[in-house]
Design a protein around this nucleic acid. Structure first.
Length: 698
DNA sequence: TAGCCTCGAGTTCT
DNA sequence: CTCGAGGCTA
């Protein structure tokens, strides 16, 4: 054909250079250098150029990331240098690091008086190990680990990963194999699943959600259709080498990681060089604490003897290097058997399915129960009694049933119908036998029994007695359970008829605890109007709304007689809350309860107007408390703030004036920093209460 | 009407 | 702590 115009070849070279550079900044350094639209324009220019002059096509061109031929299967790749596994230290305490150091020193024949060994410590990612082969600086092949000897050729899928350079920066050795971990970030995992759920909801048949980031990454890499693979955004971290020809390997592992970084690979920032075991212990602990906050999953950390010379001296035992060890953390995910699905009845009558699990140790504690939220959730995940399920306990302390392991579902379980709440409880509340209903637009089934349902009565009593309501110390589930089951207490006011003699009939209740409880009940009679209103358990009326209502109406009678219109005048009360309050007091039964409680002796001080003479330095200010304060409890701090005229809210926003942060402050502190909200410690709060800065009062 | 800000409700284990 | 939903505001 015609020879390529020199200008076209030159322009293609320029575009290669520019696009590689920007892609590196964007995907590896995470520092975009030009707007996306500009990048796209340059990219399209190169595509056009290559289409016009196919001779300009090169394997390392940025355009080569987007190709999509469905493969028949994967070719087998024999690793020139086997991909070994690393010995796992299962002792998850500090002892694991010390044991490794001791082994290394013994093998090297070091005496106690000899200098400490230098180690390199890095993260152990929960992903898929990959070998990337570069010839003359250009990516020619990517292979999975496989059995360590032979893996699969997944080049076309790996090419689509933007974090993997198609061309090395500054290295053109004949052969350089780089090894690392392909993984999926947690946010990418969530986003992917969300998209899949939307597709499934829209009726797509062949779409599936994935269980965890690791499986998602492994699935994407081994996906035969690169177009499918491309939909799952994967990331990469480099940590080692395979075959090398014509390149001088740095003398230390730390030096190698720096070199990989310089070649354009992402290398995890979290790594240290430690002399002796102490630094390793510290690293293990520090990363353990940070684990939940990392944007990706790690299952431990890896220690390596830093010097290559020492590595060579240590050698291997049965295919595992003696100079490296993986030091794990307690698993955040485990599989266990779903023994049963219980149905619990909540305060408002909500039926909640609860998974009864064969106890498993996960995330540091033994888990035997986990909520399944509601019927739709169970059906979406298709979880059935008798399934092997995956249980996770990550940053969010509360255990979750993630999914059922379908491959391990016994045939008799597969023959069962999917979970059906109505059928499971026979259409009746498991506590009182009243019919259950599920209203339009709601996800929850509810018991219609109301006050006749013992489960709801128990919850109502516990709520009334709780710390934030009228507070009856020592009245917990055990006692409420017995007292309701025995029919001693059927309504709230009957609590106040309990005497020592009656209480003595209960199990595990002696004279002494009985009289203590009677005292506590007596003490609870002196309360406040907001606490009393909150304690009644009106739907949509929590602590804050109870305070608003108390302030506006001043006493219960006015509130009980208030029309919906009058209720709407209360700040932060809208149609839903107003209707709910009105409906509550429209039931004669509820008015009776209020009367009987007052007759039993419950009383509260009249609401004083605005205490204008009081010192209210925080008037109009919003504060949020997080973490553990040195001397004040959360409630005490809250009371102090409110007494000073301020508002103690639960979440940080632009409108927050101060965040009061104690020990182990978490996401709220991050958010406050992000929004530029002022942060105080307990001393700072006290200073504010004593003498506020004048400027802030304006 | 959208988007922000709060509040309410439900939840596990030690 | 987090989700969902109610209320308010630009």
């Amino acid at each position: 054909m015609t020879s390529i115009p020199a200008t076209a070849a030159k322009r293609a070279d320029e575009l290669h250079a520019i696009l590689h550079e920007h892609a590196y900044k964007y995907y590896v350094l995470d520092e975009p250098s030009i707007p996306d639209a500009d990048y796209d324009k340059l990219f399209q220019e190169l595509q056009a150029l290559e289409a016009a002059h196919p001779e300009l096509q090169r394997a390392d061109s940025p355009t080569q990331r987007v190709i999509g031929q469905v493969l028949e299967g994967f070719d087998t790749v024999v690793h020139t240098v086997p991909m070994l596994s690393i010995r796992t230290e299962t002792d998850t305490t500090a002892g694991g690091a010390q044991a490794f150091d001791a082994r290394v020193r013994r093998e090297l024949g070091l005496a106690e008086s000899d200098a400490p060994v230098a180690y390199s410590a890095e993260l152990k990612f929960d992903g898929l190990a990959i070998n990337l082969r570069y010839e003359h600086g250009v990516l020619v092949q990517a292979a999975t680990r496989g059995d360590g000897e032979k893996g699969e050729d997944v080049t076309s899928n790996i090419r689509t990963l933007r974090q993997i350079p198609l061309k090395l920066r500054g290295v053109s050795a004949p052969v350089l194999e780089v090894r690392g971990e392909v993984y999926m970030r947690r946010d990418d995992f969530e986003a992917y699943n969300e998209r899949q759920r939307a597709l499934i909801a829209a009726g797509a048949k062949n779409e599936k959600t994935v269980v965890n980031p690791r499986n998602a990454a492994a699935g994407a890499v081994r996906q035969l259709d690169p177009n499918q693979s491309r939909k799952r955004p994967l990331s990469f971290f480099a940590y080692g080498l395979g075959d090398v020809q014509g390149w001088t390997v740095p003398a230390t592992h730390g030096g190698l990681l720096d070199a990989l970084d310089a070649m354009g690979f992402p290398v995890a920032k979290q790594r240290v060089i430690s002399l002796g075991a102490d630094g390793l212990v510290a690293f293990h602990q520090a990363m353990g604490a940070e684990r939940d906050k990392l944007p990706y999953d790690i299952d431990g950390v890896v220690y390596k003897v830093d010097s290559r010379e020492l590595q060579a001296r240590l050698g291997f035992v049965s295919r595992e290097p003696r100079w490296a060890v993986a030091h794990k953390y307690p698993a955040q995910e485990q599989t266990t058997l779903l023994l049963d699905i219980d149905v619990q009845v909540g305060r408002i009558g909500t039926l909640t399915p609860v998974a009864k699990l064969q106890p498993v140790f996960v995330g540091g504690t033994t888990v035997s129960n986990a909520t399944l939220h509601n019927e739709d959730e169970i059906r979406r995940k298709d979880i059935r009694i008798g399934d092997t399920v995956i249980v996770r306990r990550a940053g969010d302390v509360i255990p979750q049933v993630v999914a059922a392991v379908l491959e391990r579902r016994p045939p008799e379980v597969a023959a069962l119908a999917p979970f059906d709440m109505f059928a499971r409880v026979g259409g009746k509340c498991p506590a009182c036998g009243s019919p259950i209903e599920r209203r339009e637009g709601e996800v929850a089934w509810r018991c219609t029994g109301g006050v006749t349902c013992p489960a709801q009565v128990k919850q109502a009593i516990l709520h009334f007695a709780s710390r934030r309501a009228v507070e009856i110390e020592g009245l917990g589930d055990e006692i409420v359970e017995q007292v309701v089951d025995l029919g001693i207490v059927r309504t709230l006011p009957e609590l106040y008829k309990l005497g020592v003699a009656k209480l003595n009939e209960l199990e595990r209740m002696g004279e002494k605890s009985a009289s203590k409880l009677v005292d506590a009940i007596e003490r609870s009679k002196a309360t406040t109007l907001p606490r009393f209103l909150f304690g009644l358990g009106i739907r949509h009326v929590g602590e804050t709304t109870a305070k608003d209502l108390a302030r506006h109406f001043g006493d219960v009678d006015k509130l009980m007689d208030a029309s919906v219109e009058q209720l709407l005048e209360v700040p932060d009360v809208g149609p839903i809350v107003a209707t709910s309050v009105r409906a509550f007091f429209d039931q004669p039964h509820h008015r009776e309860i209020v009367e009987q409680l007052r007759a039993a002796g419950l009383h509260w001080p009249a609401i004083a107007g605005t205490a204008s003479d009081a010192f209210r330095p925080l008037l109009g200010k919003t504060l949020v408390i997080t973490g553990t304060l040195p001397t004040l409890s959360r409630d005490e701090a809250k009371d102090l703030i409110e007494a000073a005229g301020g508002k103690a809210s639960g979440s940080v926003s632009k409108k927050t004036d101060w965040l009061v942060a104690g020990e182990e402050a978490g996401s709220k502190l991050d958010k406050a920093r992000e929004l530029g909200v002022a942060v105080l410690d307990e001393a700072g709060l006290r200073a504010l209460l004593a003498a506020p800065p004048d400027a802030a009062a304006d």
